[in-house]
Design a binder for these strands. Structure first.
Lengths: 311, 311
DNA sequence: TTATTGAATAGGTGTTCCCTATTTGTTAGA
DNA sequence: TCTAACAAATAGGGAACACCTATTCAATAA
């Protein structure tokens, strides 16, 4: 025997009939002909296997079974409405949640301020920022765990899309009492003799550093420590542990306060980009798209690095 | 713009696809062709206005919007299931509630015991017994406030159906120390000289008494009191206030204990029936029908008064 | 009783649901 | 890199369904 079956449209009509105590009034309310209401109610009654409404001449009244169904129908229709509203809000970017990820430098130094701006524009949207090393962020984008990533280097992969967002420069950060403190730049071979701090593997900054210096360059460095985060690296520099190549973004505040000095390497400009990173196959939610647009706008304000994301 | 629309069937299919991460597996699970699932999902996506599933080659994964919909869909489907189960239980008479009404005599003396028996047969059914005077019970049946009534007289009405259930006899109840205490019966004109207690208007017993004695008979009675309930009448009799014509059912216990005596009126048998009473137009719920069948069975056991209620 | 009101039924049309067969596109293995 | 295998999309077609208008049937009210 087929289990009792009904769809939401039927329930909607049924509820209207119960509430208005009339087939014809209900028909009007749901923009149907009276005959169609009769028919649907009669289908519903057949599906449930019992009479649901007593037609008492002038008025219509639910049977006991009808009352039971009505109680549930109301709740079902309310739930449908809630689902609709939440979807509409989400699609209309009125509210919802985005999960994005940033590697250390963007995640700690760039994105927090931008998210604050974004939040002003979309107050009901909650932005969930995951911070990890670049490798981790890339993996999460591939897994669909986050919709968007911002990382400091490009690792090509068939399912990944990259867009350059902002420029960055690696600078040589030294303590303000360092003997080089008054110099604007140093030569590369001077650097090789200096105590040097590196980040751990998985870091984009390390990857970029390796790219610039080459493997042999890295190997000839006088590495005194490998530290997990750029904050740790900065603290190491301040404490006189050594110097390091680090993102300009990461030391901006300290340089402005005079706590650290940022030097260039003679004739060796170390520019790189931060990239916005998406899954190629997964679709972009409207909120995510809003974030993408927003981030691209911030990059256009500053430099000319731009790529279209909307198809 | 037409609001986001979906029906439960679509949601069911959608959920299966999400859970099994596959269109074809879902198709199997809901006994459809794979093409049909594709089509319905695509309709659903059109209705919602966004992509709900990302087809990532081998596997299928919900989008953000899909996740939102899925969360709600699960709850909606659970609710449908709950509604189904409750209806099935109700229709299968496994559980539920019946509201019935009894006038004083049946309500106080007959039904409580029968309801106890009924409860043994249908333990999950809660029986709600409303006690009132016959007039009140009739009105409640007409209003649909109760599904069933059991009353002591028949008031014909186009929307009411009556079935005789049990026989009753009006007896003359007197205190055990009354001068008639040893007699089996008295003559009608002896009665007219005796102090007499009557029930109030609305009572079926009063109505029947009037029917038997006739208006002039009633008027020539020596009425010392009109009391609201038969319990009150009995107490009045015990206290020597007077005598009364009362249902045999009401004094059965007292007669057996010897507290009251029940006499007949010479050559004047006062039999009446209790009637089961239903609305003609309103449909009978399965539980109510079970109660009807049960009550009729009890009457068949005792006497031959029977009328079919099942159409 | 008749007029009125409201639900049911009849008959017809367009849409939707579901099917099978086929195409398209992705993934895994030679 | 090409091919085989697999999964979803598309095409085409038939049955069922949802809706319509027009009419009939039933119940109340005058």
């Amino acid at each position: 025997m087929p289990s009792i079956d009904f769809d939401l449209r039927q329930l909607e009509i049924f509820c209207k009939v119960v509430e208005l105590r009339s087939f014809s009034k209900a028909a009007e309310a749901v923009f149907l002909a009276q005959a169609s209401v009769s028919e649907r109610i009669s289908n519903l009654e057949e599906a449930v296997g019992t009479r649901l409404l007593d037609r008492l001449g002038r008025t219509v009244v639910p049977t006991k079974a009808g009352e039971i169904l009505y109680r549930h129908a109301i709740r079902l229709l309310e739930m449908r409405q809630k689902a609709r509203l939440e979807l509409e809000d989400f699609l209309g970017m009125k509210k919802g949640e985005i999960r994005i990820g940033g590697s250390t430098i963007p995640g700690e130094y760039i994105l927090p301020g931008l998210i604050a701006q974004f939040h002003k524009k979309y107050p009901m949207v909650s932005v969930n920022l995951i911070i990890g090393d670049s490798k981790d962020i890339v993996q999460r984008v591939l897994d669909g765990d986050i919709e968007l990533g911002i990382v400091g280097y490009k690792k090509s992969h068939p399912n990944l899309l990259y867009h350059a967002l902002w420029d960055d420069e690696l600078v040589l950060a030294i303590p303000n009492d360092h003997r080089w403190a008054q110099r604007p730049s140093v030569a590369l071979d001077e650097l090789l003799r200096e105590r040097f701090i590196l980040r751990e593997t998985g870091s984009g900054t390390l990857k970029i550093t390796e790219e610039f210096l080459g493997i042999q360059g890295i190997n000839s460095l006088n590495v005194v420590a490998r530290l997990g985060t750029s904050t740790a690296v900065k603290e190491g520099i301040k404490a006189g542990l050594g110097v390091s190549l680090i993102s300009l973004w990461a030391v901006k505040a300290e340089v402005e306060k005079g706590i650290l000095k940022a030097l260039k390497i003679d004739g060796f400009p170390m520019h790189r980009s931060f990239y916005l990173l998406k899954h190629k196959k997964r679709s972009t939610s409207p909120l995510c798209q809003a974030m993408v647009d927003f981030l691209q706008a911030t990059s256009e304000d500053k430099e000319g690095s731009r790529v279209g994301t909307k198809e």
